[in-house]
Amino acid sequence: MATTDVKAPRRASEAGPALDVRTRARNHAIASIGSVLLVWLLVTSVFGLLDPETLPSPLDVARAIATLAVDPFSGSTLFGHVASSVQRWGLGVLAAVLIGVPTGALLAWIPPVRAAVTPVFELLRYIPPFAWIPLAVLWFGAGLTAQSAVVFVAAFPPMVINAQLGVAQVDPLLDKAARALGASSATTLARVVFPVATPSALAGVRIGLSNGWMALIGAELVVGSEGLGFVISQAQSNGETEVIVAGMVCIGVLGMLFDLALQKLSARALRWHA
């Protein structure tokens, strides 16, 4: 007797040999990314359908990255610009973590503080970080402080919101149980509430870091004379499209690296968490 002709769509092993799902997903990813790169190469370098000022070939972009790494562009090499961007970003997000996470915890833990801060916070958080750029420039001048301030403004809200969410979602029963076992308020906070709230708070930090990176690029595009955002805006005025794309690649890669690093860190910190 043959097997039933039961139709079961969305099944992983429909096509031929039994490959597991991950392998098949990986093969598809390689195929799609590979073909996009191939098309890019074909329309630029091989057939020259697009002129390099519109879309440079991947080879030009690679060459531009290599050149940027050794020859100064608008004042410093690629590493100099990266260092400057990372510094401003680092300052802004560090301040956001140090202020934002405790603020969030406080907001969740102490209702009167929440009642006082929430309306103001809710009003301000709808102003996009970029709208602060002109004010930051007005207040601090077009330099490190203004850009770090914009990073701070971008990174702060998700850190507050997620830390608050993390603490608020701690089961009140745990709090009660800890107190019934004789824990003081401080002990409860440190040993029961914070561990439970950490995953959410870390998720907020992660969002904040990437928001901050985005805001920094925006700030550098508008004002300042160093950093990756400045590089691409300068390259646009010079008409060097391959440098624009090279800068975009660097921005993307760095953003991804920061995110990966934080993911690894939080995975390590949250080993107890399912």
Binding site: A31, S32, I33, W213, G255
Partner: peptide, 26 residues
């Protein structure tokens, strides 16, 4: 999903703002 999502993941880390210079060129 297997075909499109990796491309998305590749482009996502580049903030939309960083496209502004290229958008102006284009």
């Amino acid at each position: 999903r297997w075909l499109v999502f990796p491309l998305f993941q590749l482009l996502r880390p580049v903030p939309p703002l960083a496209w502004i210079p290229l958008a102006i060129v284009w």
